[in-house]
């Protein structure tokens, strides 16, 4: 007897149980009525629930699966239940390194300066946008590893907090 398969779908901090039943229908979380998923083309599905229908686009690997329906797009993590999820590739936005290659346009702090979580440490320019790098926590600036005008890459810390 083929058993149903259970998955955990995570979107940020929210986790939803999704069960693929033996009849092929899908139960999602505490939704009372099951869904039917029909493939239309590569990455394109028609999902129905009773009289409701959605066109859904899907692409990407299980741990970074992009889903779009009615103008809303999210990236979720799909794991069979019981397996611990692989670490998600989450964009670093509060860290001390550049989130993307960019040019340092302003350094707002100096070594020895006390900063609070959320303070702007420096500003980068990338893709014509100004990106502030903020302190992820309270602390004292112990080192600044970049200079205005410098092109920096993601990874190495630009500022160190003690």
């Amino acid at each position: 007897m083929a058993d149903s398969r259970r998955f955990i779908v995570r979107q940020g901090d929210a986790a939803t149980a999704v069960v693929v039943r033996t009849d092929g229908r899908i139960s999602v979380g505490d939704e009372s009525e099951a869904f039917t998923v029909l493939p239309i083309a590569a990455g394109d599905y028609l999902v129905t629930q009773g009289a409701h229908a959605w066109r859904v686009a899907v692409a990407g690997p299980p741990d970074a699966r992009w889903v779009s329906a009615r103008g809303t797009t999210v990236c979720v993590d799909v794991q069979p239940e019981g397996q611990s999820g692989a670490p998600r590739r989450v964009a670093a936005t509060g860290g001390l390194s550049a989130p993307m290659p960019g040019t340092v346009i302003e350094i707002a702090v100096a070594p020895g300066q006390r900063v609070q979580a959320g303070d702007v440490l420096l500003k980068l320019e990338a893709m014509k946008m100004e990106l502030p790098i903020r302190a992820p926590r309270d602390g004292v600036v112990s080192a600044v590893h970049c200079a205005p005008g410098q092109l920096v890459q993601p990874g190495p810390p630009l500022v160190e907090l003690a």
């Binding site: 398969r5 998955f7 779908v9 979107q11 939803t16 999704v18 693929v20 899908i26 999602v28 979380g29 939704e31 869904f35 998923v37 493939p39 990455g43 599905y45 999902v47 629930q49 409701h52 959605w54 859904v56 899907v58 299980p62 699966r65 889903v67 779009s68 329906a69 009615r70 809303t72 797009t73 999210v74 979720v76 799909v78």
Partner: peptide, 17 residues
């Protein structure tokens, strides 16, 4: 943004498929 449950169903089926 809140994604409809239907999209999560498709996300899982895509993996399966």
């Amino acid at each position: 943004p809140s994604i409809p449950a239907a999209a999560l169903a498709a996300a899982v089926v895509h993996a399966d498929a």
